[in-house]
Each structure stands twice: as C-alpha cells, then as structure tokens.
Amino acid sequence: MSRAIIAGTGSALPDRVLTNRDLERMVETSDEWITSRTGINTRRISGAGEGTSRLAAAAGRKALAMAGVDPGELDMIVVGTITPDMTMPSCACLVQKELKAVRAFAFDLNAACSGFLYALDLADKYIRSDPSLKILVIGAETLSSRVDWQDRNTCVLFGDGAGACLVTGGAGERGYLAGKLMADGSLWELLHLEAAPGHNRDLRPNHDSSPSIRMQGREVFRHAVRAMEDAVTRVLNATGVKAESLRLVIPHQANIRIIKSLAEHLGLPPEKVYVNVDKYGNTSAATIPIALDEANRAGLLAPDDLVMFCAFGGGFTWGASLLKW
C-alpha cells in the first residue's frame, strides 16, 4: 500500500523581528507578562514584498530543492491559510505562478491553525489514490495583517511565516500512518476572525465585524489542551503505538503553557516535544511545518522515527497525524 512520504521540507520567515520590548512601547504590556504567560520572546512581522504567497513560495522552493524535485513536476499545491493575499485568486494559485509550476492544480484550505494538518491529510488521500503524484503542502500566514495592535491580549501572540513539505508516494512502512481530524463550529465565537465588511448591508453581522482576530483566551486554552490530547490518543490507539515510542511530537506553537500541559497529559518528557514558540510566536497554519523544517534540518529526525503532529485552531478545528519518517 502506498502512503504519503515527506520527501523535503522548507520554511521562510520575514526579516523584521518584533521583540517583547518593542511591544512595551506599542501597548500596555511588559516583557515579563508576555514571557510568563505565553513563552514568546520574539515574532517575525512581514514587510514590503513579504506577503503570504511570497513566503509560501519561498518555503516551497526550499522543500522542492531538498527533495530534488523541479517545480514543473508538481501535480498539486495546497496552502493552509486564513490570511491569503486576496480572496481571489487563492494563495496557492499565486504560489503556482511564482514557482512556475505549470502542471499543478492549486487551491487554499481554511482550517485556521489546523490548516497544515488538514492539508497533509488530504494530500495523503490523493497519494493513496495515485502514488505517482507530487504534492506541495504549505502552511503560510501573515497574521500581522489581521491583528488589532491595540488589543494586548492578542497582538503579543501572533507572527508571520510559512512552512512547506514536498509529499510523494512510497510503499512500505514509512510515511503517513494515520490521522484524526475534528471540528466544532458551535464554539466559533471563542476564537474567530471576521471578514472585511461587505457591500450588502443585509449580510453584515450585528456583532463586532472588525476584521481582526478575537479570542477568549482562557476558554481557548481549556479546549485546546483537552482536544489535542484526545486527538493524539485516538491516533495512538488506532495504530497501536505507545506514546513512549514517539521520537518527536511537533505541536501547534500557540502558547508554551498549552504545549507543557499537553506534554504532561501525554506523559512525554520535554526533549520529545519540539518548541520554537519563543522565537516566532503563533503563526497559525505555519507553526507545524516551520517547526518540522527546523527539526529536520537540525538532524533531529532519522529514518523510521515516529513523529506526531497535533494542532488546535479557530473554528474550532483540531487534529493529530502520525508519520514514520
């Protein structure tokens, strides 16, 4: 049976670094307050020429180069994002143009912070149908464009960036073993991002329609830990894998407290849980592929290692995926 194998990884980050000290001058907060509650020290903020599609294409190029695949060989590009450059065309279509991937069809997937996991699971389904496919799976965001910089509860959390994987088909034991994806739209108001007001007044919501991220942090925290633990446990049970057999868990990088609570609930030591939230903050759909690329290039993964991804995001959406490297 053929399954999706990650043949190459890549990531791209904006040049500008925004520190906690910088934020102290912008909003009523402090470095100590941010660090103690989130674990974030710095985040990257996009400037001119560093839009979502540009970052996504840059990450994609690196993944292609590692895999030794020419853009012209690509069959499909899927981008997980909630911050595309525009509503139409999709970010994926702009990436296709940028890479000159003339054979590939392309589309975006909106599952908030779970976008990369949803996209990777979808790529695996395509690969199982046709193992010859070469698929570029990307998570990319410029959340700085959707943050209210006067809201100290959210503006300290988010950053910009992109991560990518080149996915191909392969036989044997390696590759995408199992995934579990879930959603609960009834809780959307706890974490959401309104669209810009439309021209049809009858379709405008009566509540706050500011196109900025809105979040009830305590409630999101409570749901996130429980949901990700449940998703990981379901995948482990489905595959018969024990948590102690995992080489590395790469969780969504939202908050160090969430990550530590998840590790504690799963009984995992710190060295088995990858963390880079301190450097980049929450980059939504981009957090897992950026972290994966860092871990991969640092030599932390060897053939046949078991790697678990898990994420939780607005919607609510959440899930987990298990791969044999």
Results as ranks from 00 to 15, higher is better:
residue 145 S to M: 11
residue 165 C to E: 07
residue 148 D to G: 12
residue 107 F to M: 12
residue 145 S to R: 15
residue 95 V to R: 02
residue 124 D to H: 13
residue 88 M to C: 12
residue 105 F to A: 13
residue 97 K to E: 13
residue 140 A to Q: 02
residue 119 A to N: 06
residue 156 V to G: 02
residue 162 A to K: 02
residue 169 G to F: 03
residue 139 G to P: 05
residue 120 L to Q: 06
residue 112 A to E: 06
residue 169 G to W: 03
residue 91 C to Q: 05
residue 98 E to V: 03
residue 134 K to N: 10
residue 110 N to S: 13
residue 111 A to L: 09
residue 155 C to H: 00
residue 105 F to K: 06
residue 134 K to R: 14
residue 114 S to R: 05
residue 98 E to N: 08
residue 151 D to M: 07
residue 109 L to V: 08
residue 153 N to A: 13
residue 113 C to K: 05
residue 158 F to T: 05
residue 145 S to P: 00
residue 95 V to N: 02
residue 96 Q to A: 08
residue 147 V to G: 09
residue 91 C to K: 01
residue 148 D to S: 09
residue 161 G to D: 03
residue 145 S to F: 13
residue 105 F to G: 11
residue 112 A to V: 13
residue 159 G to H: 01
residue 118 Y to I: 07
residue 95 V to Q: 04
residue 87 T to A: 15
residue 103 R to P: 05
residue 161 G to F: 04
residue 117 L to F: 11
residue 114 S to W: 09
residue 113 C to G: 05
residue 166 L to I: 09
residue 147 V to T: 15
residue 151 D to C: 05
residue 169 G to I: 03
residue 132 S to I: 02
residue 121 D to H: 11
residue 133 L to D: 06
residue 95 V to F: 03
residue 125 K to H: 14
residue 132 S to D: 13
residue 105 F to P: 00
residue 90 S to P: 07
residue 132 S to Q: 13
residue 154 T to Y: 03
residue 110 N to H: 11
residue 118 Y to S: 07
residue 106 A to P: 07
residue 108 D to L: 07
residue 169 G to A: 09
residue 158 F to G: 04
residue 113 C to R: 04
residue 121 D to C: 10
residue 164 A to Q: 06
residue 105 F to C: 12
residue 92 A to K: 03
residue 127 I to E: 06
residue 93 C to M: 11
residue 171 A to W: 00
residue 134 K to V: 10
residue 109 L to M: 10
residue 139 G to I: 07
residue 139 G to V: 06
residue 95 V to Y: 00
residue 87 T to M: 12
residue 134 K to Y: 11
residue 117 L to K: 02
residue 99 L to A: 07
residue 86 M to L: 12
